[in-house]
Design a protein around this nucleic acid. Structure first.
Lengths: 258, 258
DNA sequence: CGGTCAATTGATCAGTGTCAAGGCAGGTGG
DNA sequence: CCACCTGCCTTGACACTGATCAATTGACCG
């Protein structure tokens, strides 16, 4: 299924332009990128360990995640991706996967051929900078994950996760008013936080009983912004969000970008 | 202190060429990069949280590391860098640091102005690819760190750390014969593994008493390769090392690159 | 020859994992 | 339309890994 509809690529463009400057021609070139749409059910592998994909995928709908397996089958989820993200841009220059990319919920993805992207980054320095930068923000989220797993308690990690997922969705225009979708199971959240589902459940109970959040029916409601941020020791710098951000979660006027 | 000596940049070139193809002109352009040498004592900050450096630094001698601080002052070391590494290439396109880069041991670094690198990546696609790729391998190491902290036991992390540091040094021509330098304290190793120094010490004791490694006077000796790899559940894929690698640690003929 | 910092060890404690059981909700088939 | 099934959530009891506190030893240095 091929399409010339520019609205798909506008999602990508939107994400890039929140943190990078592009010229008119850059925009046009990005909007003209060829792509193919594919749909996935919940929990289906998209690209697996060892593969060398020839496409990058843009998440149009649903949540996607990357995970690795250690030894006897323990899964560690590395990162979740939401609509607007291009989770595998990195494989343009690091072809072989050392982990697996998979859907979490039922998802719709646009696959963009590597060839088209190579042409773009070689001819358009600002597009190169924007894409490179996007892969670096990805890296930055991993670093924060390392901080979480290394130094935050179970409840701190849980709070941090909600801060991150709310803010990322808010930036993408998918959330607001301290309420957002968390369309995954507690087992999956536990797998990204490096704790057991049982223990995550207890952390959730603690946050709920203190009236910090409510998590119900796949939706998160942040009841006490300040308490959540404090519990998470959340510093949004690592998301490199753009200076003009207006957020219901973060009120500081700090310049976050670049 | 400025220099036209090409031997400094050859270190950088060597690292890039182990995993990327470059043409003759690319090589010449890299060797012609301007730089300034600076020396640091042990444990001095190089670029700090919030800074926007105008240089990338190439480690010529000594170990360097990146760390973040959470809330009340808990330090988490994110990654160690060894001679030949360019730890902050990423700040070309993500200028503001969300963590701190610092020396561990006394170190010598070459500072390359961002301006010179921008010119290079815009004009030389293969250099762009090589540098981008280098930042992506950095990312890959963070991913593995997440796996470690999320899923490996204390002793597994310890073994994994030794595998990684030995192999990286071997690749850089700084180690061989299952012996390498580990010029840092147990406290620093503990800080990267997300455990306490006391507990790291016990893990070390376990590895030592099982005759797996010896760590002494700043040197690591791997006594039982197979046991170390097994304890670490070490899979070197994430280092994307290059297919022609010959290692004293890893004997598989697996094609690891790309 | 103290002084300082790192390594080592022991004792105890807290946080998280493991095991097990029950509850709840949504989906399916009779 | 109801009964059952399945997957997820929730809770309790207990075990274990790793943290904390504290003291000792050892190595290097001025």
């Amino acid at each position: 299924m091929k399409s010339d509809d520019t609205s798909v690529m506008e999602m990508f463009l939107g994400k890039l332009e929140r943190v990078s400057d592009l010229g008119e021609e850059d925009r046009a070139a990005l909007l003209a990128l060829p792509y193919t749409i594919r749909r996935f059910g919940a929990r289906e592998d998209i690209f697996s360990y060892g593969e060398k994909p020839a496409y990058c995928c843009l998440v149009l709908d649903g949540w996607v995640h990357r995970y690795g397996i250690i030894g006897d089958g323990d899964r560690q989820i590395l990162l979740f991706y939401i609509p607007g993200d291009v989770p595998d841009l990195q494989h343009l220059f690091l072809p072989m996967l050392d982990h697996t990319l998979a859907s979490i919920t039922a998802s719709t993805l646009a696959f963009i051929p590597h060839r088209a992207l190579y042409g773009l980054v070689e001819r358009r320095p600002r597009v190169m900078a924007a894409l490179w930068r996007d892969t670096l923000i990805d890296t930055s989220m991993y670093r924060e994950r390392v901080m979480c797993l290394g130094r935050r308690s179970s409840i701190g990690r849980t709070a941090h996760f909600f801060c991150e997922m709310y803010l990322r969705q808010e930036l993408a225009g998918l959330a607001g008013d301290l309420r957002c979708s968390i369309p995954i199971t507690q087992g999956e959240i536990a797998d990204v936080l490096g704790i057991t589902p049982v223990h995550l459940n207890r952390s959730l109970r603690a946050l709920r009983s203190r009236q910090v959040i409510d998590l119900n029916g796949g939706y998160l409601t942040i009841l006490d912004r300040a308490a959540l941020i404090k519990t998470a020791e959340f510093d949004p710098t690592y998301l490199h969000m753009g200076a003009d951000l207006k957020s219901d979660l973060i009120s500081t006027r700090k310049v976050l970008v670049s």
